[in-house]
Design a protein around this nucleic acid. Structure first.
Lengths: 143, 143
DNA sequence: TGACAAATGCAAGTTACTTGCATATACTGC
DNA sequence: GCAGTATATGCAAGTAACTTGCATTTGTCA
């Protein structure tokens, strides 16, 4: 169990990024900060609903875009045809997605830094980020 | 320069997979077999148009889905909000996508096999595939 | 060559996301 | 605390990438 973040912290985080503090933003930040896996938009909206924080779907999209631009959160794609978002302040890691039950788990550590350097050396490009996801069948789903 | 594939080969490839041979399917297979990078649906459609192969957009979507299911091609995602497809019969590799000009290049070799084994050992899951893409600025775009 | 299943085309639907614009609200200075 | 202003929000409508349903066409096999 993780404790609910001090609302004051979220507040300061937003102020630091020169963003206005609104209930919807605090709510979105709170749910992403405590999520164990990247969340899609409808999950975030469901959380706001449950917390009785009124927020239009469009507003949530706009908030997620704004947070992404500021680097507060990071979009992740699991080949579902939609984006998920995770709090950016996590150590580099990857994800394993079960294609049967959809469960997601973190894969600790990032092994591709070396390869990034190789690419930069070989091609002259600058690599700024990467995405690495593993797909398969989790233990519970597999025989 | 790559040579255009023998239409007879495509034909046999489809028959082998127990799929009917139609002009649209031959066209889609041909363009993907010779593409240097994964193509999105509208690019495939543009190619068919140029070749004067009549094919509805819906048909192309259906063909690509069917080919994916048979493992003939493989969907790839570059965080563009749409899928691309590449011919499956290529050695394992990854992609580098320039976020400025959109150009795509292959990154030879696959370095994550070892990590896959680790995941399987640690979690008891079965990893069937992964996706690894690098994003950044290519040499031509960067200063 | 004809029968039948599979593929296609067209229209309409769905999902994820964006845009425009009027209204509401958070912050700043007083 | 309060007014002024920039910013955030809500609602309606729009868009892009697919998907689905159904009637028609076409490839395949006997």
């Amino acid at each position: 169990m993780k404790s609910v973040s001090n609302p004051h912290d979220c507040r300061e985080e937003l102020r630091r990024l020169e963003m206005r503090v609104t209930p919807a933003r605090l709510g979105v930040l709170d749910v992403l900060e405590h999520a164990e896996v990247p969340l899609d938009v409808s999950t975030v909206i469901a959380y706001l609903d449950k917390q009785q924080i009124p927020a239009d779907e469009v507003t949530v999209f706009r908030i997620l875009n704004a947070f992404s631009k500021k680097g507060l959160i990071r979009p992740v794609q699991f080949n579902e045809g939609k984006l998920r978002y995770e709090y950016a302040d996590k150590p580099p890691h990857h994800h394993f997605i079960c294609e049967q039950c959809g469960s997601v788990s973190d894969v600790e550590g990032c092994v591709v830094g070396e390869l990034e350097k190789q690419i930069e050396k070989k091609t002259g490009a600058r690599v700024t980020r990467h995405s690495l996801e593993f797909f398969g069948i989790c233990r519970r789903c597999g025989v």
